[in-house]
């Protein structure tokens, strides 16, 4: 995408095609495998039905039926696409069956948590870089905490908050904030430390104050690291929110859609919710990527 805007003329098409062709091939292969798998996995049920109804199935019938079941073991790609389209465009946005509405519930909690987590991470990183006691106290634990499956306890957090009477956006946002906090903290500390001794000495030789040193040197050189961790953080925040929507009782959000689909065996609904979540994640990561390119290009850091 970057190159397309940067280089002129006919090479753009050629290079774009050169990059897209392998990806498209692999995607097509995946879809083909998916169809085969759908036929194979749904065939047992279709055959059972046929035996029960005492009808004889031709291969054509078998394939047609495996791809049109209402509750297939594995829905075919076009069924998922239909479910997704139905959920996005086929409902009023305020409807409880609209994926846009559920997506918005998830998105708002994700963004709120992401904002809180990022702000806290950046602030703490600034403190850590300037205070050695803070650095030595907090950093080992921050790094070690990355190995702890925090996400797994997200549903518990929701239940505990609910027992205190706090429901809705806030508990989920807390989980999202918690999950996006650590990547930002670790990445930002690393980024603020990138200026090497020579650059710092140079600042020192100009008699720059600590504040000047921060705004003119440390902060700009940390931005590439910050953006890299922001991408990780927003993905983590989204996953956190979705898992936070899993506990029984949740009725809104993409996670709740997943859960209710799994309760009632609505496989198409599960897959549609899953793809909605995937699209949301992709869009969020791409937005941060675009922001990153814009910022870095303005700073002259991009290629």
């Amino acid at each position: 995408m970057t190159e397309a805007t940067a280089s002129p003329g006919s090479t753009v098409l050629g290079r774009g095609l050169g990059r897209a062709l392998p990806i498209l091939t692999v995607l097509l292969a995946i879809i083909a495998i998916w169809y085969l798998a759908a036929i194979w996995m749904n065939a047992t049920w279709v055959r059972d039905q046929a035996v029960r109804a005492d009808t004889v199935l031709t291969t054509g019938d078998l394939i047609r039926q495996t791809l049109t079941l209402e509750r297939p073991v594995l829905p075919a790609p076009h069924q998922v696409a239909a479910g997704l389209w139905e959920g996005i465009a086929g409902q009023k946005i305020t409807s409880k069956r609209s994926l846009v509405w559920h997506g918005w519930v998830t998105l708002s909690a994700t963004l709120a948590g992401f904002a809180i987590g990022t702000a806290a991470g950046v602030l703490l990183a600034v403190g850590i870089v300037h205070n050695r006691a803070m650095d030595q106290s907090v950093m080992p634990w921050a790094v070690a905490s990355q190995t702890v499956p925090i996400l797994a306890i997200a549903p518990m957090v929701i239940v505990v908050f609910a027992s205190m009477g706090v429901t809705g956006l806030l508990p989920k946002a807390m989980i999202a904030a918690w999950l996006s906090f650590f990547p930002v903290l670790v990445g930002m500390v690393k980024g603020l430390r990138t200026p090497d001794a020579m650059q710092l000495d140079l600042m020192h030789s100009w008699n720059a104050s600590r504040v000047q040193q921060f705004w003119r040197l440390r902060l700009p050189s940390s931005l590439p690291y910050l953006f890299a961790s922001l991408k990780v953080a927003i993905a983590a925040a989204l996953v956190g929110t979705i898992v936070g929507e899993l506990p029984a009782g949740a009725t809104s959000g993409l996670g709740a859609r997943l859960l209710s689909g799994s309760y009632y065996g609505q496989t198409v609904q599960i897959w549609a919710a899953l793809f909605a979540a995937a699209i949301l994640a992709a869009v969020l990561v791409m937005l941060i990527g675009a922001l990153e390119r814009l910022t870095l290009r303005r700073m002259g850091l991009a290629r």
Binding site: L151, A235, I242, V243, L258, G261, S262, A277, A281, A282
Partner: peptide
């Protein structure tokens, strides 16, 4: 790279069914 950023835990209900 794309898939690595997705909320893959979401496939859990499907795989539990399977």
């Amino acid at each position: 790279n794309f898939v690595a950023a997705l909320p893959i835990v979401g496939i859990a209900p499907i795989l539990v069914m399977w």
